[in-house]
Design a protein around this nucleic acid. Sequence first.
DNA 1: GCAATTATTATGTGCATACATAATCATGGA
DNA 2: TCCATGATTATGTATGCACATAATAATTGC
Lengths: 233, 233
Amino acid sequence: MSATQKTSYGDVKNAILKRIHDTVWAPGSLMPGEVALSEEFGCARATMNRALRELASDGVIERKRKAGTRIKSSPTRQAKFVIPRIREEIEATGFDYRYALIERTEETPPDWLRARMGRKGGDDVLHLRCMHYAGSRAFQYEDRWINLASVPKARVQAFEDINPNEWLIREVPFSDAEVIFSTVNADQMLSEMLNVPLGAALFTLERITWFKAMPLTYAKLYFHAGYQMTTRL
Amino acid sequence: MSATQKTSYGDVKNAILKRIHDTVWAPGSLMPGEVALSEEFGCARATMNRALRELASDGVIERKRKAGTRIKSSPTRQAKFVIPRIREEIEATGFDYRYALIERTEETPPDWLRARMGRKGGDDVLHLRCMHYAGSRAFQYEDRWINLASVPKARVQAFEDINPNEWLIREVPFSDAEVIFSTVNADQMLSEMLNVPLGAALFTLERITWFKAMPLTYAKLYFHAGYQMTTRL
DNA sequence: GCAATTATTATGTGCATACATAATCATGGA
DNA sequence: TCCATGATTATGTATGCACATAATAATTGC
């Protein structure tokens, strides 16, 4: 049997990417229409349409009715970061993942937390402090608050054998989440927990999760010194 | 005229998202096949296919031939960060953007840079040090190296009135880029440049850019203290 | 000459059909 | 019992056709 019977939308995508790459079509310039291209490549317009549609959603080209399709001059600088679950992230490096609960208390939420979670009421929250280790090395310190009004099941969960994130993912569906990356200098507690010098620059990730406008949980994660996030565009 | 004549793939997507949201189909469970769904929703299989295909690429569901389509139990936590150009980022906050070149030298690349850019040759590089201000406040310090072998035009560019990034975007097409986020404690130079205490935790962004395996430029950006990146999933 | 209207055109979407492909399931023989 | 083989089936892709929609170009009326 012959290798490729028909021109697939994937082939078309690659061919077009190559042309852009080779500046056969200059950035910002208009490229031929769907009909012309489908004739040239020997495929149906639907096939060409799919190829171009995907290229557009990849941010490589820009399409407008009647106006036509043009090569993007400055591609959308959109970095996609995968935020892996910590167990997978650690085990992927070959280390054993270990989790330890440090403290578990029920509290009335402090003002800053109420502000962060956008909630008026004085609902009780479950406050968890925990550590995540990669082998014998401290990897991450986690400060976690869970809204007991929206996640009552958490009240009877010890969180000694399962980390809050894994438990929440399994038990509670969420609809929206906000993620904030920032940095902080290690204070006394963090420096002891993460075994880093006092004042070391640490990566932090805050995450607030809702289900239909109902705040579920707020987490602030402090990574070990030297942690970095990488991505390609 | 009636509002919606036919069920569009967008309507189907929303309806299905709602079902997942309302846990009509539990996470991890199998949902009906394309044919059944298209009958239920009153559309062609092609339409249903497109809806499901897009939901899959959004990371909401997982599809496998013969095995069927199932709701992802742990949705791909993919955060998309837009990396805006600094001028736009600053002007969006209402401040004036100001750029200043500190130093411009031609050098032979240090070893670490050669390693980073994955290049053997002893090609000369243009080394630029510059500052970006938001109004009167220091916003970002930039350490930039440009490979003169691949970007010879940079040799005759003063970079006094235009910042390296804007110039490069306009003049040089690129194919790939790698982005690394990390943190660093402010040293003497950074503390003076960014007007922050010595040792302050700073956000840094490194970026390496290629055109067809040919390294173009390496940049390390140091943000002012308190800088943070936010996104929603 | 200028503004409002109409024609044209490129992309956007929907549909029915056909065949391809990858997993799974059922079957039969050693 | 177990493994190889083929049947089954859900998704994947290609195609031709029709009509919708938005934006531009051409035309008309004043």
